[in-house]
Write a protein that binds this DNA or RNA. Structure first.
Length: 288
DNA sequence: CAACCGCCCTGGGTGC
DNA sequence: TGCACCCAGGGCGGTT
């Protein structure tokens, strides 16, 4: 389940292994993988072939590669997307969706995605607030790893919302990069229940939960950032952090690391939220 | 306009 | 053993 830290690991791998290289050929094996590229597979391939990959960039969970043409290959990994760097001739993966072969005959870039929630597209770019972004990313807020990220701006955006705090944390126009896992971890660290109304959070409390989200993602990046080698750019949906250090997410019935009460699981937007019943009590009037 | 809901998709896991 | 069902997840389009 790639969230910001996992996507950043992939970005670093792409930066190291495919930037600066001239593309010879692009093959699309599944139309759904490029469904966001409206002109279709032939156009998708033609826009990339012959160009050189210039840089690998990221905002939140979006990842893109700048092309020498001025356009960008935009990628979202969804929940099962992988970017692999494989030698030409290596057996095709079962869920191989797109292959990018290079004119230098070096390793190929492969987009592999079992569940096809992810996908690729070629996009024009636009400058927003001094940063050049693919058009579909233009409306996404800066993420906490962004050098220009403003905590004050994120606090204000969060408190402007009239909704539950977890919904706001997952809203990529408030702050980007936070998914279900890191939202639950940040809320646990800040001792906030997910249903607390954003417009009643004090500024310090809003800043605390956002700061905790930043910290937990930085910890995860440190733990996961060492897990790829030269031929395996992807993190396989897992990081060392994911296995080891979660305090709340997925820990139903396990003792809260702070107080020992069993972590509870509650339905949230057709999925789950994990909280400590003592550290993260229900807000007044909560019923569900 | 902002909030919110349902849907997209697949395979691993579970219960009968 | 096999089958039906549940569940995971982010983003987007449609509705309220």
């Amino acid at each position: 389940m790639p969230e910001l830290p996992e996507v950043e690991v992939v970005r670093r791998g792409l930066e190291a292994h495919v930037t600066g290289r001239p593309v010879a050929r692009v093959e699309v094996f599944h139309p759904r993988a490029i469904r966001r590229h409206v002109p279709g597979a032939v156009d998708f391939a033609a826009r990339i072939a012959g160009s050189t990959l210039v840089a690998a960039r990221r905002r939140g969970k979006y990842l893109w590669i700048d092309l020498s043409t001025g356009e960008a290959v935009l990628a979202h990994l969804g929940m099962s997307g992988q970017m692999l760097v494989q030698p030409p001739g290596a057996p095709d993966e079962k869920h191989l969706r797109v292959r990018v072969a290079f004119a230098d005959d070096g390793p190929e870039l492969r987009f592999v995605d079992q569940r096809t929630f992810g996908g690729l597209s070629v996009e024009e770019t636009v400058a927003v607030d001094g940063t050049v972004l693919p058009v579909p990313v233009a409306h996404i807020a800066r993420d906490p790893m962004d050098p220009h990220f403003s905590l004050d701006a994120a606090v204000a955006a969060l408190r402007r919302k009239k909704t539950e705090v977890k919904r706001a944390l997952l809203d990529q126009t408030v702050v980007s990069g936070i998914g279900n896992i890191y939202a639950d971890e940040a809320l646990w660290r800040a001792r906030l229940h997910w249903a607390r109304p954003t417009d009643k959070l004090t500024k310090p409390k809003a800043a605390e939960v956002l700061t905790e989200a930043t910290t937990v993602m930085a910890d995860a990046l440190r733990a996961g950032g060492t897990s790829f080698d030269a031929l395996y750019v992807n993190i396989n949906g897992q990081s060392g952090y994911f296995d080891r250090s979660l305090n709340a997410y997925g820990q139903e019935g396990e003792p809260c690391p702070r107080c020992g009460r069993p972590i509870r699981r509650e339905p949230f937007m057709n999925r789950s939220s994990f909280t400590c019943p003592r550290c993260q009590p229900h807000p007044a009037g909560f019923s569900r």
